Simulated assay, not measured.
Amino acid sequence: MVEEAPYRRIAAEIRERIARGDLAPGDRIPSTREITRDWGVAMATATKVINALREAGLVETRSGAGSVVIDRSSPQVEVVIQPDVPAHAGGFHVAASPRLRRAGEPELNRDRVVSSAVAIADAEGLSMLTMRRVAADLGVATMSLYRHVPSKEELILAMIDAVFGENPLPEEPPADWRARLETAARQMWQSFAAHPWAAEPLSLTRPQLLPNVLPYSEWSLGTLRELGFGVDEMMHIHLSLFGHVRASALNLDAELRAREDTGVTNDEWADQHGDELEAVLSAAAERFSALRYVAERGFDYDIAAVFESGLRLLLDGVAVALARREVSGDEQVDLSVV
């Protein structure tokens, strides 16, 4: 007897939970990372599970929520049969491979492809994004996506541009230089906080020319130029600010994925490893006295708070550099704005 494929078995288990009502319409089903953890399978297998449930018309991906159970009774949803797909999918029988689409849903276009990809990345991280996964979400053949985006790499850039377009910089910048730089940094941070996966693909050394991201560079560099900084100083300050925002977002993304992988928050992780840390620090008390000092008093690791503190220190440094230029006579800068 041929053993059933693991992805079909897992899909059937989740389907049974849906049928029993344990997972109601709108409820999030286990993510690919949770499937790998709870069922002990590879990520590729977990992805097949989600795809099988989606192809069976049971789930859809929603931005910020992940893959959720669809309300099949909704008048806004209709089942579309794809007769060219095998009838046995996901470990359970269907008349064909149905896909659900919203009533009045528009034809496939670039915006729909990008929007679907963003929802998948928001729900499960950029590492889970594949052209096949996007196609399954949209209920189309994978090759049809390439008429709208020529490659996965270009799709990711379009996704980043789209999420930055959600929250553009204000038309009128603040009059004060510090408020200008602070506004740009905080606005970029907000975009990353909403979509942490967007930080990793953006490059400091080989910047991508994205229409909704370029204004941040112009805003920052224009402000620094008005203050009288030279090109090298302008770029060093700009890259330091951008690097801080991006690094904070990378930490945020890593923490979100670690939490999903393990089901443990960073505070819970610290509690679980407290005895281990205490043993290491006690064995070398003099060598690690500063670490012991912090451990004894406790530190609430809040990535947003670390971002704010780092931004304040960087802007304080710009103020010092600006004042130093005035004192040395390098430039005649109006220090009323410092």
Rank of each mutant, 00 (worst) to 15 (best):
residue 1 M to F: 07
residue 3 E to H: 12
residue 6 P to E: 05
residue 12 A to R: 15
residue 20 R to E: 04
residue 22 D to W: 11
residue 24 A to T: 08
residue 29 I to W: 05
residue 29 I to D: 02
residue 33 R to T: 07
residue 35 I to V: 14
residue 39 W to N: 14
residue 47 T to V: 09
residue 48 K to H: 12
residue 50 I to V: 15
residue 53 L to E: 04
residue 54 R to I: 00
residue 56 A to I: 00
residue 58 L to T: 05
residue 61 T to H: 10
residue 68 V to Y: 01
residue 72 R to P: 04
residue 74 S to Y: 02
residue 75 P to D: 04
residue 77 V to L: 07
residue 87 A to I: 01
residue 88 H to Y: 13
residue 89 A to C: 14
residue 94 V to Q: 07
residue 96 A to R: 09
residue 98 P to Y: 06
residue 100 L to H: 11
residue 100 L to R: 15
residue 102 R to L: 06
residue 104 G to K: 13
residue 105 E to T: 13
residue 106 P to W: 00
residue 106 P to Q: 07
residue 107 E to A: 15
residue 108 L to D: 03
residue 110 R to A: 09
residue 110 R to C: 02
residue 111 D to G: 09
residue 112 R to E: 00
residue 117 A to C: 12
residue 119 A to Q: 04
residue 122 D to Q: 08
residue 123 A to G: 15
residue 127 S to C: 01
residue 131 M to Q: 09
residue 131 M to C: 11
residue 134 V to F: 05
residue 140 V to N: 01
residue 147 R to T: 02
residue 151 S to C: 02
residue 152 K to T: 04
residue 153 E to G: 03
residue 155 L to I: 04
residue 156 I to L: 01
residue 161 D to L: 05
residue 163 V to G: 14
residue 164 F to G: 08
residue 165 G to T: 05
residue 170 P to A: 06
residue 172 E to H: 06
residue 174 P to F: 04
residue 175 A to H: 05
residue 178 R to D: 01
residue 181 L to Q: 03
residue 182 E to D: 13
residue 183 T to F: 03
residue 184 A to M: 05
residue 193 A to Q: 12
residue 198 A to G: 06
residue 202 L to V: 13
residue 207 P to D: 00
residue 209 L to A: 11
residue 214 L to S: 01
residue 215 P to I: 00
residue 216 Y to T: 02
residue 217 S to Q: 05
residue 221 L to F: 04
residue 221 L to Q: 15
residue 228 G to S: 13
residue 230 G to C: 08
residue 241 L to P: 07
residue 247 A to C: 08
residue 250 L to W: 03
residue 250 L to S: 09
residue 252 L to H: 03
residue 259 R to E: 14
residue 266 N to M: 11
residue 281 L to T: 06
residue 285 A to F: 00
residue 285 A to D: 11
residue 286 E to T: 08
residue 287 R to F: 05
residue 290 A to N: 08
residue 294 V to M: 15
residue 297 R to S: 14
residue 305 A to W: 00
residue 307 F to H: 13
residue 308 E to S: 15
residue 308 E to G: 15
residue 310 G to H: 10
residue 310 G to V: 08
residue 311 L to Y: 13
residue 312 R to Y: 11
residue 313 L to R: 07
residue 315 L to A: 08
residue 326 E to I: 12
residue 330 D to R: 00
residue 331 E to R: 09
residue 334 D to R: 13
residue 335 L to S: 04
residue 336 S to D: 00
residue 336 S to P: 01
